[in-house]
Deep mutational scan, measured.
Amino acid sequence: LQLFIKTLTGKTSTVEMEPSDTIENLKAKIQDKEGIPPDQQRLIFAGKQLEDGRTLSDYNIQKESTLHLVL
């Protein structure tokens, strides 16, 4: 599924993920695209901070969801 990652600067990146992927996997993919180390990334979806060990489906993240990346 395609996700949009929006940064505080207003920049939006697109990443392709599976519902079974963990937040950790997602942060690794963001690191590949943006060069931001996972330990500096905080991802927010629906007002919640996402935890590394959980999966996208745990948070009911659907295709074309927008996640907010806070550093």
Rank of each mutant, 00 (worst) to 15 (best):
L1C: 05
L1Y: 10
L1V: 09
Q2T: 15
Q2A: 07
Q2S: 10
L3V: 09
L3R: 01
L3A: 01
F4L: 09
F4D: 03
F4Q: 08
F4G: 03
I5H: 00
I5F: 04
I5A: 00
K6Q: 11
K6A: 07
K6F: 06
K6V: 14
K6P: 02
K6E: 09
T7I: 12
L8Y: 12
T9G: 13
T9D: 14
T9H: 14
G10R: 04
T12I: 15
T12E: 06
S13W: 15
V15H: 05
V15C: 03
E16D: 09
E16Q: 11
E16H: 13
M17F: 11
E18W: 13
E18A: 12
E18S: 13
S20C: 07
S20G: 13
D21G: 09
D21V: 03
D21M: 08
T22R: 07
T22V: 05
T22P: 03
T22H: 04
T22E: 02
I23T: 03
I23R: 00
E24Q: 12
E24I: 11
E24M: 13
N25S: 13
N25T: 13
N25C: 08
N25K: 15
L26W: 00
K27H: 02
K27R: 06
K27N: 01
K27Y: 03
A28F: 11
A28E: 09
A28G: 08
A28W: 10
K29A: 10
K29Q: 06
K29V: 09
K29N: 04
I30P: 00
I30F: 03
Q31R: 13
D32M: 14
K33G: 05
K33H: 07
E34F: 15
E34C: 14
E34Y: 15
G35P: 02
G35I: 02
G35E: 03
I36Y: 13
I36Q: 03
P37H: 11
P37K: 06
P37R: 09
P38V: 15
P38Q: 13
D39L: 08
D39T: 10
Q40V: 10
Q40E: 10
Q40P: 02
Q40L: 11
Q40C: 09
Q40S: 08
Q40R: 13
Q40H: 13
Q41L: 09
R42I: 15
R42A: 07
R42Q: 11
I44K: 05
I44W: 15
F45V: 03
F45M: 05
A46T: 05
A46N: 15
A46K: 15
G47V: 01
G47E: 05
G47M: 03
G47H: 05
K48S: 09
K48T: 13
K48G: 06
K48Y: 08
K48L: 12
Q49P: 10
Q49T: 14
Q49F: 14
L50F: 02
L50M: 06
E51V: 07
E51M: 12
D52K: 04
G53W: 13
G53S: 12
G53P: 06
G53E: 10
G53M: 08
G53F: 11
G53Y: 10
R54F: 13
R54H: 13
R54C: 08
R54I: 05
T55A: 07
T55F: 08
T55R: 11
T55V: 07
T55W: 04
L56F: 06
L56I: 09
L56Y: 00
L56Q: 00
S57G: 09
D58G: 04
Y59V: 03
Y59L: 05
N60M: 07
N60Q: 08
N60I: 05
N60W: 05
I61H: 02
I61V: 07
I61G: 01
I61C: 01
I61F: 05
Q62N: 09
Q62L: 11
K63Q: 14
K63D: 15
K63N: 15
E64Y: 15
E64S: 12
E64H: 14
S65N: 07
S65G: 06
S65T: 09
S65I: 05
S65R: 03
T66L: 09
T66W: 08
T66P: 02
T66C: 05
L67A: 02
L67I: 15
H68F: 14
H68M: 14
H68W: 15
L69I: 06
L69N: 01
V70H: 09
V70I: 13
V70D: 06
V70K: 07
L71D: 07
L71G: 07
